[in-house]
């Protein structure tokens, strides 16, 4: 009867832990019942090895037997799969555009500093392709993660659908734009554009030496090389925010443009997260401030590493939140339900 044990074990290997033992017992019981029946039919006193083989063959492979007991669980189910495909396509195209822009910007910068040779061009191209490859894989993982979370929470919400009544239907909200919110947005964008492009030293450490203010920028090259892309995203957001604050209502094209800009910003966020430390000061930079070695060592060894991790975690959270927001908007737009903008 070792064959029965092996068969039951193989079925059990495929089953979830919580139901495995119970189902194994049930399948063993079924096989034994069928064996007894076969013995009666053939007038045998005891089941033979041949009978066991026949019955197991009739039952089919263990995978087939186990399949019926497996729950239908999806990471991304049929309900969201087509939206997932659409979002993934948008994300991939946005990354491709961003990387193409980055490639051109890098070439222009290289030609201005060291001159453009074939070796430099190939080097920049390979580096850009590596960023694209890494970006595509990671963005795929992030999008899958977000959709899996939506799928999981939707399954929980499906339970509530049992208690649905027509009274629970929401009244359609007007698609008006909060002008105050847009004005705040414009102010913040102008602020960011001014600080990062005109006064970059403001983002750093300031100290008075002999009555004179000294500024030490702390953002690294990992940040500055993405500034051209950030400028493009901020400028696009600025123009759209200005138009929307005048227009006062959402239109389909402005909604899609808004989503496009948000995805573009997400791509930049991703590049910023994966580019390495964003905060740091080269050793010679500290001379500006005239600080003691102990204070400098404390900053270099303790404050900066913690700050870098905090920034990356913060940007990661922002990326996920933006992802959920973008998906929510796409989902609502494809379902034809108006977006409700939260007023500040």
């Amino acid at each position: 009867m070792k064959l029965i044990d092996r068969y039951v074990n193989e079925v059990g290997d495929i089953l979830p832990d919580e139901t495995r033992k119970d189902i194994e017992n049930e399948i063993r019981s079924l096989i034994e019942d069928r064996l007894m029946d076969r013995c009666e039919e053939e007038g045998a006193a005891e089941p033979t090895e041949e009978m066991v083989k026949e019955i197991l063959a009739e039952m089919g492979p263990p995978e087939k037997t186990a399949k019926g007991y497996l729950p239908e669980v999806y990471l991304i189910g049929p309900r969201y799969f087509f939206i997932f495909k659409k979002v993934m396509t948008i994300v991939a195209v946005a990354q491709l555009i961003a990387v193409a822009v980055l490639f051109i910007v890098r070439l222009v910068m290289e030609s201005a500093s060291t001159g453009l040779t074939a070796a430099v061009t190939v080097g920049v191209l390979l580096e850009t392709l590596a960023i694209l490859g890494q970006g595509l894989v990671t963005s795929f993982a992030i999008v899958v993660l977000i959709f899996a979370a939506i799928e999981w929470s939707q399954r929980k919400m499906d339970v509530q659908l049992k208690f649905w009544t027509p009274q629970t239907l929401n009244e359609p909200a007007p698609e008006k734009i909060s002008r105050v919110g847009k004005i705040f947005e414009i102010i913040f964008i102008l602020l960011a554009l001014t600080v990062f492009n005109i006064y970059p030293e403001w983002v750093g450490i300031s100290n008075q030496v002999n009555g004179e203010w000294r500024h030490l920028p702390v953002l690294t090259e990992n940040f500055w090389r993405f500034l051209p892309l950030l400028n493009i995203a901020w400028s696009a957001s600025l123009v759209l925010a200005m138009y929307l604050s005048v227009r006062g209502i959402w239109e389909p094209w402005s909604k899609w443009l808004d989503i496009g800009i948000k995805i573009f910003e997400m791509v930049i966020l991703f590049f910023l997260i994966s580019s390495g430390p964003l905060v740091g000061v080269p050793p010679q930079g500290w001379n500006e401030l005239g600080w003691g070695q102990e204070a400098i060592a404390a900053l270099q060894n303790n404050v900066f590493p913690i700050t870098n991790i905090s920034i990356q975690v913060g940007l990661g959270v922002a990326l996920v939140v933006s992802g959920v927001e973008v998906l929510r908007r796409i989902f609502k737009m494809t379902r034809g339900v108006p977006i409700i903008e939260i007023k500040p």
């Binding site: 189902i23 049930e26 399948i27 079924l30 039952m59 089919g60 087939k64 037997t65 399949k67 019926g68 007991y69």
Partner: peptide, 9 residues
């Protein structure tokens, strides 16, 4: 049987 047993559960 592959239909009946899981269905009973």
């Amino acid at each position: 049987q592959g239909t009946l047993y899981p269905m009973l559960r």
